[in-house]
Design a protein around this nucleic acid. Structure first.
Lengths: 245, 245
DNA sequence: GAGTGGTCTAGACCACTGT
DNA sequence: CAGTGGTCTAGACCACTCC
């Protein structure tokens, strides 16, 4: 017992199990940057696998910048682990918290209704299928900074029907509960649409950053979300290497 | 001799050499989507390495979506290889060509001058160091779609002094000639700054997408570029999996 | 059935670096 | 010098899928 709570879940290849066991606490913030991760030798002994298998998992995490590895010094959670993962998770609550702000979200609308043509196209379901529509407004230190318009296919996440999103954003709720295989992003600038202008208190035509994201599990879409932020309020930052590993 | 031109360059670890040898022709477009890549067995025989080493290189390319692998069917260049790499290369000429348009660029300004305070900060050089400043306007089918404002540290790429950028954009020129270790992106929306409005023919305050990118080799910056596009003209698209390998 | 990739093992040698 | 990661080998078994 080393008490660090690393356990394998028995799902899929060993190297991915080890990867998940370590990536989870890093992405959730439970392991702060700088925290030391057990050495390859320790993990070999703990899980009873070969060193190559452990190395594969850790090398993959290092390639994405979630951990940093140095000979003799060992493997530690990377200082910029959160920044490097930003293109993937884009959780505004975590972003605001990291910047030292206070996050709050209003649930402006919530309805489960038959999909219209546009909604059906976004979620790739048949028109008329019941879809959950959520609209939230996110605040940083009390100032509105983002409008979230989300569609969810409840068939892909039935438990969402009883979730109130009191202490968690829908994006993180889904990320933690629904396994996904692929995500698709579109990032662009627009002049504030009416809904965004009204909810964010902007003048018509103000510049906004829009991120649309659709997440898939296999051939089926789980959710589609449009995130609209006023110019300057939100900036996407990412860094990466030449994907050499 | 299989005549596909794959050769190792002898630089660094074998798995990275193999990776580069295959990623190069894919990223440059020389190998079209769907093209079959030699099997692991063939590569083992050709390079005289173990299968694990070949597998490591190919698995890494598959993890990024540059190739697709299927048992029995073999490994082929991925259909969406270009789309998946978009966050990394972001070459507007290639984007326009892929969409079926005609790209043209005007070199609006070119000067090598001592860096002012702001330029020195962007390139992380001492104020007064000579830096190359380039301004280009990119057109798709004759319509201005992007203003490129670039700073280059000529010490990192001396050959750039004699390059005219007649048939190549500065971004691609640098990408092909200067090895980099890290890139840093900031993506946001702004109301058109004066220079962008003037060069792109926009009204003041029009919404624009701005991408700033700084590329590093080790501790030294190679280039900083600010790409400004009118709302709607340019959309960043990316897709990826949960980085499971 | 045969070819392909997916995974895993046991071991080896080396390079780096903190103590 | 000892601990750590970086790399590589030779071989194995399995799963899938096209022919």
């Amino acid at each position: 017992m080393n008490g660090d709570g690393i356990v394998l879940d028995g799902q899929g290849p060993l190297h991915l199990q080890i990867r998940r066991a370590i990536a989870g606490p890093i992405l959730s913030g439970a392991w702060a940057p700088g925290r030391r991760i057990p050495s390859e030798h320790e993990l070999v002994a703990r899980f009873g696998v070969s060193r190559m298998t452990v190395n594969r998992a850790l090398a993959s995490l290092a390639g994405e910048g979630l951990v940093e590895r140095r000979r003799r010094a060992g493997t530690v959670v990377a200082a910029r682990s959160a920044e490097r993962a930003v293109f993937e998770i884009w959780d505004i609550a975590a972003e605001i918290a990291r910047a030292g702000g206070v996050h709050r979200a209003d649930l402006l609308a919530r309805a489960e209704e038959p999909a219209g043509a546009e909604e059906a196209a976004l979620l790739k379901v048949e028109p008329g299928t019941a879809v959950l529509r959520l609209v939230l407004r996110h605040h940083a230190d009390g100032v509105p900074v983002q409008l979230e318009e989300r569609l969810v296919d409840p068939a892909m996440a039935p438990a969402i029907r009883t979730e109130t999103f009191a202490g968690i954003t829908p994006g993180r709720w889904l990320l933690e509960r629904v396994p996904w295989t692929e995500a698709e992003h579109r990032i662009g600038a627009v002049e504030a649409p009416a809904a965004a202008a009204r909810h964010l208190g902007l003048s018509r035509g103000a510049a906004c950053l829009v991120v649309e994201r659709r997440t898939w599990r296999g051939e089926r879409a789980i959710t589609h979300v449009r995130l609209t932020s006023p110019a300057g309020a939100q900036v996407l930052v990412g860094r990466f290497g030449p994907s050499a590993g």
